[in-house]
Design a protein around this nucleic acid. Structure first.
Length: 463
RNA sequence: GGCUGGGUAGCAGAGUGGUUAUGCCGCGGCCUGCAAAGCCGCUUACGCCGGUUCGAUUCCGGCCCCAGCCUCCA
């Protein structure tokens, strides 16, 4: 039985979908004015694994993840660069997709962009205005009147009065209440703008997610997710808008991914302490990043460090080494009822406990290594199970040789033949019992980053 | 100040009212010409103070500390 922690109720709840065997899921994606950093990677990988697991559990998942391609930061950055905002966002959308592909993040079922749904947003704003839930500020902006929504603060577990006292921003005079948020922003001269009943302008941030989730998933859907920092005010505002407009519950389960930290601080653009995905990929293979992200539970903070990535690399290597001896070439996925499968499922059913699930993979790998000598066939069978389970996490899908060797060759600027020729020389030295020479060659290989493993039969392999 | 999370062995990171997490590192053994890989075994835990209990790291209360949110942020 699948349990999901719901931010709204602050409890793990048994998951029940609105329509049997189908899930509608919305995740707030990126604002595209810069390259994605590792924090973004964490969120996207986390939800990717969640979707993969839900699908593996038999659900048909309609996964919508938006792209915010118009907002203040985009306009600002485009101005800085002296380019159009369209050009800017097109470039970073491409980069985003490249990064996601690299990390084996499966594309969402639908990836809507804000600028393509201005009309849908206006429809909602209009409905809110008609009900006097929204109002026109004197400056041409349209605001949402937070005081009209009785459940405001339910998701972030705050009350309106608490929020008021905590206000530390200058209040826009056009607002009735400092907590009111903008639905439609009047355009300043030379800003990108769309026509509307309230004049030229652009949508506020929150309204886009209401409009696009409604379009893709309907007025009421199963799961809504995002990073922890979106709980307030973004998701709170989405709920207020959507429920006021549709007169019904917006999303049933609210899921939030914890922060990636660096030196115990949140990694973020505002703090300037971030690493972009592409930077990190220069040093570590995408699968290592993915593994690193999955070592901790999605709701816990995860500390980024070089050491942690090195650790991830070694750990993944262990799994691939277990796999390299078994010819687990596809097929034979009948081991469905195995104890491994059961343990894995139990772990994932418990609010997607990936660290526990990884522990199962390691136990499985050990078992493989143990029986590999005496029962190769059985070991291969286990290998298939290992691969199949790992696939749900988006891991271990490369041929072991590729994972184990490619990075080394690239880093050393070598090709296979060069390595093999050295190994052949060492082989000859060993055959002549010239250990000194053999060791000297091995040292040279070590210097290149190549690890040598001799086996009993007299063969040698490397990684 | 209010509201969320969290404090587990050298590090990372799960979990549990009494019995092995897991990975990395370290130590011993097997294997090896020596290594590496693998296997077997071992060492180092549950922030502090009370309470409940036959028994608490696990439940309850208090305290201390850390992170996050209350402004844009995944």
């Amino acid at each position: 039985m699948l349990k999901i922690y719901n931010t709204l109720t602050q409890k793990k709840e048994e998951f029940k979908s609105i329509v049997p065997n189908k899930i509608g899921m919305y995740v707030c994606g990126m604002t595209v004015y810069d390259y994605c950093h590792m924090g973004h990677a964490r969120t996207m990988v986390a939800f990717d694994v969640i979707v993969r697991y839900l699908r593996a559990s038999g659900y048909e998942v309609n996964y919508v993840c938006n792209i915010t391609d118009i907002d203040d930061k985009i306009i600002h950055r485009a101005n800085e660069n002296k380019e159009s905002f369209e050009k800017l966002t097109a470039r970073f959308i491409e980069a985003l997709e490249e990064d996601m592909r690299a990390l084996y993040v499966l594309p969402p079922s639908w990836q809507p962009r804000a600028t393509a749904h201005i009309e849908e947003m206006q429809v909602i704003i209009n409905a809110l205005l008609e009900q006097d839930i929204a109002y026109l500020g004197g400056n041409g902006d349209v605001y949402y009147d937070v005081s009209t929504f009785p459940h405001y603060g339910a998701l972030s577990h705050r009350h309106l009065d608490q929020l008021q006292s905590g206000i530390r921003v200058e209040v826009a005079e056009a607002k009735r209440n400092p907590l009111d948020f903008v639905l439609w922003k009047a355009a300043k001269p030379a800003e990108p703008a769309w026509a509307s009943p309230w004049g030229q302008g652009r949508p506020g941030w929150h309204i886009e997610c209401s409009a696009m989730s409604m379009k893709g998933l309907g007025e009421h859907f199963d799961i809504h997710g995002g990073g922890f920092d979106l709980i307030f005010p973004h998701h709170e505002n989405e709920i207020a808008q959507s429920e006021a407009a549709n007169h019904q519950t917006f999303a049933n389960y609210w899921m939030h991914v914890g922060f990636l930290q660096i030196n115990k601080e949140k990694m973020s653009k505002s703090l300037g302490n971030f690493f972009t995905i592409r930077d990190v990929l220069k040093q570590y293979s995408p699968e290592v990043l993915r593994y690193f992200i999955l070592t901790s539970h999605y709701r816990s903070p995860l500390n980024y460090s070089e050491e942690a990535l090195e650790n991830a690399k070694t750990a993944l290597t262990r799994l691939y080494i277990a796999l390299r001896d078994s010819d687990c070439l596809e097929e034979k996925s009948e081991g469905v009822d195995s104890v491994w499968q059961k343990r894995f499922t139990e772990a994932m059913d418990d609010d997607f406990n990936t660290s526990e699930a990884l522990a199962v993979l390691f136990d499985l790998a050990r078992e493989m290594n143990r029986i590999n000598v005496e029962d190769k066939e059985k070991a291969s069978e286990l290998g298939q199970q290992l691969k199949a389970l790992a696939n749900i996490l988006g891991l271990l899908q490369q041929p072991p040789a590729v994972f184990l060797k490619e990075a080394i060759l690239q880093q050393a600027g070598l090709d296979t033949t060069q390595v093999e020729s050295l190994i052949q020389q060492r082989h000859e030295a060993r055959a002549a019992k010239n250990w000194a020479l053999a060791d000297q060659i091995r040292e040279e290989l070590t210097r290149l980053g190549v690890v040598i493993e001799d086996n009993k039969a007299g063969g040698t392999r490397w990684r």
